[in-house]
Write a protein that binds this DNA or RNA. Sequence first.
DNA 1: TTGTATGCGTTATCAC
DNA 2: GTGATAACGCATACAA
Lengths: 336, 336
Amino acid sequence: MRKRETIRRTTAKEVAAAAGLSKWTVIRAFTPGSSITEESKRRVMEAAAALNYSPNLLARSLATNSTRQVAVFVDDFRNPQKLPFLETLTDRLQAAGLVAMLININNHFDHVHALLHADQRQVDAVILFGTAFRDETLTDRQLGNGMPPMFVLARDSQIDGVPAVVCDAELALRDIVNHLHERGYRRPGFMSGATALSTALRRRQHFTDFWAEKGVSEIELLSAEKYSAEAGAESVRNYLSQMAPADRIDVLMCENDILALGAIDEIRGRHGLRVPEDIAIVGFDNYELGGSSAYSLTTYEQPRHEMVEAIIGMIVGTIEAETVTLPGKLIIRGST
Amino acid sequence: MRKRETIRRTTAKEVAAAAGLSKWTVIRAFTPGSSITEESKRRVMEAAAALNYSPNLLARSLATNSTRQVAVFVDDFRNPQKLPFLETLTDRLQAAGLVAMLININNHFDHVHALLHADQRQVDAVILFGTAFRDETLTDRQLGNGMPPMFVLARDSQIDGVPAVVCDAELALRDIVNHLHERGYRRPGFMSGATALSTALRRRQHFTDFWAEKGVSEIELLSAEKYSAEAGAESVRNYLSQMAPADRIDVLMCENDILALGAIDEIRGRHGLRVPEDIAIVGFDNYELGGSSAYSLTTYEQPRHEMVEAIIGMIVGTIEAETVTLPGKLIIRGST
DNA sequence: TTGTATGCGTTATCAC
DNA sequence: GTGATAACGCATACAA
């Protein structure tokens, strides 16, 4: 690793010497709201500009005990939804004077490892983005003793005392089921991707419950092996091949848009059926491609900006750090 | 911002006191390869474990003048290709003991701002991922004086002395054109998304050149307003509406897969034409959905892992920091 | 308003 | 092998 010593930055001390003042006066010039003469400040800024000086944030962090860095844990880069979320998240963090450390949680680098590392780096907070610890992985000791405050984004928190920001799944599924019921669908199916996830289970449960309220107690359950278009297509293929046309579902809700797109392709392509006339499709997440005229996928959009603002509010302390549930938006298009 | 002083970490000094040794001995216990007795090390580690101690990387960075942090600049979160790249990049950085600071370059936070900020944070390097400065934005002064070393990933470098890692566009387009020519296509078109980008211009130029070598000098040029499926569809729609069937192109190369997917939908859906029989389609980037049976898009895959390894090699100094051009892979599917 | 001393937690260097 | 001194660059508290 090429060290930076070869290209030393100028320090406050050097600026002070150039300006004929003490280094503390230089510090003051760069500290908003501190008491300093206009004249001194001008002289400092002049010398600073000449020497190309700017404060060393590393040293500042060490002295203030605050790095203004936030670790963001991500463990599923397959979900395209991560990208717009990362865009919003980094943008709002930056607006708040914070910066994101992107941590990839995978086989080489697990949650505990990452948390310990983030702690060593003195981050001000950790965002578990779509990720959660299993309860067992962390001892109370590790959680209690000096770990940075943690927040869960877009996923239920599994740990007591760790707040989360989530999209209101109950409201979402209620809106969806109401919409489908109004359109006259009565034989619903639900395709899940990875049933181990609590968010996934929850969506399915709400879907089932609200249909039950409508008097529909039988929900066809499909499952895809993973969250990919191919897996969604395969799941539908299996289902259609073993089901007589008369007994088929008339609407399929997929756990996310990727599965839904795969399902639509399969239904139209290989089976020559129509969407929504033969089978209607609903997705989740409002992934961009679903909005194109070819798919026109009815879906549900998570309130990305509000979720991000909420979690940042928690981090900077303007919002009480308790779990926040925010309403999203049903987006009705041609697939239903 | 909640400071961390409330939850103070234990320091080497405290461990030293508990172990009855000096703090320097504690440091040695945590420094691989330093000379220390087995006995001392054992005592230190015992005390450290009891007090839950781990070294403060912030202080270490200040002392060693190396943060082992790398700033990654991203300015286009619309391109889904960013996500798998980010996955690979973070994974390999972490494997090298580095960590990524994800910086969102946008209207609120431009390149210069970001570079100055990264410099203040003392990052060991800056990766311009798919991004480039315009030549004018940086003065020689800013570039020369103590800025962290910069590297461009997946884009041509615009600045002298800033190395880049790119996919070999010449090879890619040669392979593509050869393939299309072999298949018998003779009336090629090229759809570009944002012609301002140098990478984009380059692809188009190579496409034109290689067709010229085959004796085909006329290339139909379509342009989409942005890199979205909708824009790709619209571009094709305009083209088809103003072109007599007999004069149509027989193959369309799109600058990336998103445009290509939109084009396919439009060609099949609204115009009832077949792919590849009426018009063949080629994309670029091997975006996941293109591989699904519905699209079966012929495309070109950038050598993601090799590119990432190369740029990390440059950063840690195992590879000479000169621009590296790596060969990708043509992926032939049903759309041609 | 300005200058001084001290601390943040580590590493590098030298003496023992 | 171990302890001590200095240094990294800035912030805080206090004195002038």
